[in-house]
Design a protein around this nucleic acid. Structure first.
Lengths: 113, 113
DNA sequence: GTCATGTTTAGCCATATTCCTAAGTATTCG
DNA sequence: CGAATACTTAGGAATATGGCTAAACATGAC
């Protein structure tokens, strides 16, 4: 397990905002322009661009400008590390809680004997 | 899919910090006191307490004070929503990318014909 | 009771975040 | 060319975040 993974910092932080999650959810259905994405939330364009920039810096979306229109799309595999961390953690977590459960169960059994 | 889930905001934001992830990783092996956890990172206790408070507010850890010692432990199922969101998203994401792949493949095939 | 230990509170500082408006640039349309 | 469209840049304000030191508290050990 990595001591300190800055990529994970960026990805989780990016996911911690509802506007940015909404963008990702929308992009999961296919690419979209900045204006189309901005229409999802009631926010001025410059503010919204800040969110897109963070998603791009986190490596979660890629953008490309054609003429005056910028199109955004998801980056494959960007969620992998986050999901892996969570899965590993959840496994340990539940294993640990299971053992605690067993401990409590054993305790209860001992008392009834 | 929830329009705007504040619980998810808190959980992902909490995960976006290496100090807090280190705490969770440590707690996955069993409960620990505040001092024990603080020893994991070079940080003054009051600063560190701020991180613990965030984890507690996010519902990810529970704490309890016995005498002058506060013990911290994981909360079961706290990672569930985050993991679920990521899994759902990743599924859509990869499905979408697969279809894009198929589209590109088809395009290439068309050109060679 | 005194003293060490383990937090907790209070208060401060620097920087980052998240929003805004106004004005600028670049492209496309008529 | 002129006007509309789609961003982009510049700059600013409010609040949040992440760190600190110093001092207060509460409890356990002697």
């Amino acid at each position: 397990m990595a001591k300190h993974d800055p990529a994970l910092d960026h990805v989780f932080t990016a996911l911690g905002d509802p506007t940015r999650r909404a963008v990702l959810e929308r992009l999961a259905t296919g690419p979209a322009t900045v204006s189309e994405l901005n229409a999802l939330v009631p926010m001025a364009m410059p503010s919204f661009m800040g969110h897109l920039r963070k998603l791009e810096e986190a490596g979660m979306i890629a953008t490309q400008k054609d003429g005056r229109v910028r199109t955004c799309a998801l980056v494959a595999g960007a969620l992998g590390p986050a999901r892996d961390w969570l899965s590993a953690q959840k496994a340990l977590w539940e294993d640990r809680l299971d053992r605690f459960d067993a401990f409590v169960t054993q305790l209860a059994k001992d008392q009834t004997e």
